[in-house]
């Protein structure tokens, strides 16, 4: 099952890269044969690495939610982050530090997605992940003063409602 799914995804990627090369419904027949051979080799080599414990990411609802998340709140946060960084480049006033936040996410894929998301969103950059309980160490470029007083840092002001989205996508 893992072999079939990995080979099929590799074949789709090959077809996407060689679109409009011939006459057999957009592809030429040699491209299709070479694509099948290489997809089978890829599936045999990487079937245990590409798919983890279960097949939950094959659900199309999760992919739809991922596209909505990327086009909606993520793009908006990315635009805000860039305007903030441009202001900091021009003015040069910074107030940096490294903070520890606990996210409460469990599996590897969702922690990876959250770390990538907060790297690209306002003023934060993930530095280190604690392996056992999923805590993130975040470098923040412009720390607000009132945030420093509470010792268990709340992750609401760093990553907004990203953990809720990611729990729905990959949880």
């Amino acid at each position: 099952m893992r072999f079939i799914v990995t080979s099929f995804i590799a074949f789709l990627a090959y077809l996407l890269l060689t679109t409009a090369s011939g006459k057999v419904a957009l592809w030429s027949s040699t491209e299709i044969i070479i694509g099948i051979v290489f997809a089978l080799i890829t599936g045999a080599l990487f079937r245990n690495r590409f798919i983890g414990k279960n097949f939950r990411m094959l659900n199309p609802k999760r992919w739809f939610l991922l596209i909505v998340y990327l086009c909606g709140p993520f793009l908006w946060a990315l635009a805000k982050a860039n305007i903030e960084v441009v202001c900091l480049v021009i003015t040069g006033k910074i107030n940096p530090g490294i903070l520890k936040i606990s996210t409460g996410l469990e599996n590897d894929l969702s922690i990876t997605m959250l770390a990538n998301s907060i790297t690209l969103t306002p003023g934060t950059l993930s530095v280190e992940v604690s392996e056992e309980n999923g805590d993130l160490y975040v470098h923040w470029i412009n720390i607000k003063e009132e945030f420093l007083e509470k010792m268990p840092r709340d992750c609401k002001s760093v990553c907004g409602n990203f953990p809720d989205w990611i729990r729905r996508i990959a949880g």
Binding site: I94, G97, I98, L99, K100, I143
Partner: peptide, 20 residues
């Protein structure tokens, strides 16, 4: 970032460093 922190480069003018 992780490699830089492990190789010992500390943030300049940092007001807090939980990882340290």
């Amino acid at each position: 970032a992780r490699a830089g922190h492990r190789s010992g480069v500390k943030p300049v003018k940092a007001i807090v460093d939980d990882l340290e």
